[in-house]
């Protein structure tokens, strides 16, 4: 069964017909040629397909596209900005570069999106598994960042560089991370 849906993807309105079986990930990668979200497991177990969906980090492999009609999707490619003709990187992306927070790069767009989401969740005071005092404020310390990023696997083992990148951006004023 085919259904028409509308999405905003990286700032662009996209209207398309989808098979009701199509996942958001396959819609992006195979129909809309948005290949920044990666397919690492197609099974909710690696985080490579993470995007920001209506502002929150979200897996696209366990989402039927038809159920997200009207949503706004921002992928890692959509986090970049522009200055004149030049593409500018989001502060999180720049920090990944500065700390070599990747090797093969396949998990990287998902890590970047997840990091942006983590910083927002910290700003909203969401606790995590390692938050000692559930009723107090949450800190953006290393333990918190590691735990919160744990839904994004990196087989190259770039975790120390990724942590350094997220830590650096977490230390910036909130205006720098939105």
């Amino acid at each position: 069964m085919e259904t028409r849906i509308r999405l905003t993807v990286d700032g662009r309105q996209r209207e398309t017909s989808v098979d009701t079986r199509t996942t958001l990930l396959d819609l992006l990668r195979e129909r809309l040629d948005v290949t920044s979200p990666k397919k690492g497991c197609d099974h909710g177990q690696c985080g490579s397909c993470t995007v920001l969906l209506d502002g929150r980090r979200h897996l696209t492999c366990l989402a039927l596209a038809v159920a997200y009609d009207g949503s706004e999707v921002v992928t890692a490619a959509g986090l970049t900005g522009s200055e004149g003709d030049d593409e500018t990187l989001h502060p999180v992306q720049q920090a990944f570069l500065d700390h070599d927070g990747y090797q093969c790069g396949y998990c990287t767009p998902g890590q970047v999106c997840s990091a942006v989401g983590v910083l927002r969740e910290l700003g909203e005071g969401h606790p995590s598994h390692v938050t000692e005092d559930l009723t107090g404020p949450v800190a953006a310390d290393d333990d918190e960042l590691r735990e919160r990023m744990s839904g994004n696997l990196c087989r190259c083992g770039a975790y120390p560089g990724i942590l350094a990148a997220v830590r650096e951006v977490a230390g910036q004023p909130a205006g720098g991370i939105a």
Binding site: G44, R56, R57, L59, L62, S114, G117, P127, S128, G151
Partner: peptide, 10 residues
């Protein structure tokens, strides 16, 4: 908070 991941919990 012990379950799944940040993305999945959303």
């Amino acid at each position: 908070l012990a379950g799944a991941s940040g993305q999945l919990r959303h």
